[in-house]
Design a protein around this nucleic acid. Structure first.
Lengths: 111, 111
DNA sequence: CAGTATCCAGACCGATACTG
DNA sequence: CAGTATCGGTCTGGATACTG
């Protein structure tokens, strides 16, 4: 019931719903980018400047990923120079809560 | 506070404590393997037979990873033929709870 | 049965240069 | 300022064959 969908001819296959774990958590910067947004750093330029080692290409890869999963949403302002903002969705906030728990667990002492 | 440790000369760096997310969740089979253990499938042979596409090499890679993070523990029985069992630790159970939430979220409708 | 060694294909990611 | 294109280096995962 967790991490698998069903057995196919007696064999267990990984769940499609675990995809979010793989795709988001597996991506090197997705979580960091996601966190930046939750902290109010919403514009691509800011993000690149804030994170050491983050390039525009990688940033956009991560953003697209997060967008695809509905964790964030994009707003384009019709201005010159162009302005864009990304924000965490309601769904994304639920995700964030879970990530916070993981973060806590990760820094907790193993007993 | 989440997903980063501190700013170094004004730049944000990813947190060491997010490592568990990266390493475990990012690994293609680690979660599945972990789930198998939580379901009582504890011996390597069983696991390989249960999961379509899982080879012994990949299985051992995943197991080592989970061991390193203290999510599981290994028991060796001095028998012939050799028998080994892996079990989820108390720490691993906490991790499992969080993964269950993720699983739920992943299969929930995006609103 | 448990675990390792090797080799190969593909994914990711980072640097750079470029367009709108 | 926002975003894309391209090109390598590197790491991971999968197939296979092998040892204890």
């Amino acid at each position: 019931m967790v991490f698998h969908e069903k057995k196919i001819s007696g064999r267990i296959v990984p769940p499609a719903s675990a995809e979010i774990v793989q795709k988001i958590c597996g991506c090197k910067w997705s979580l960091t980018v996601f966190w930046l947004l939750s902290e109010g750093i919403n514009r691509p330029g800011e993000m690149v400047r804030s994170v050491d080692g983050l390039t525009t290409k990688v940033l956009n890869d991560c953003l697209r990923r997060n967008l695809d999963f509905g964790l964030i949403e994009k707003t384009t302002f019709p201005e010159v120079p162009p302005r864009v903002e990304y924000h965490v969705t309601a769904y994304g906030k639920q995700f964030l809560n879970i990530m916070r728990q993981l973060e806590q667990l990760g820094s907790a002492p193993r007993t």
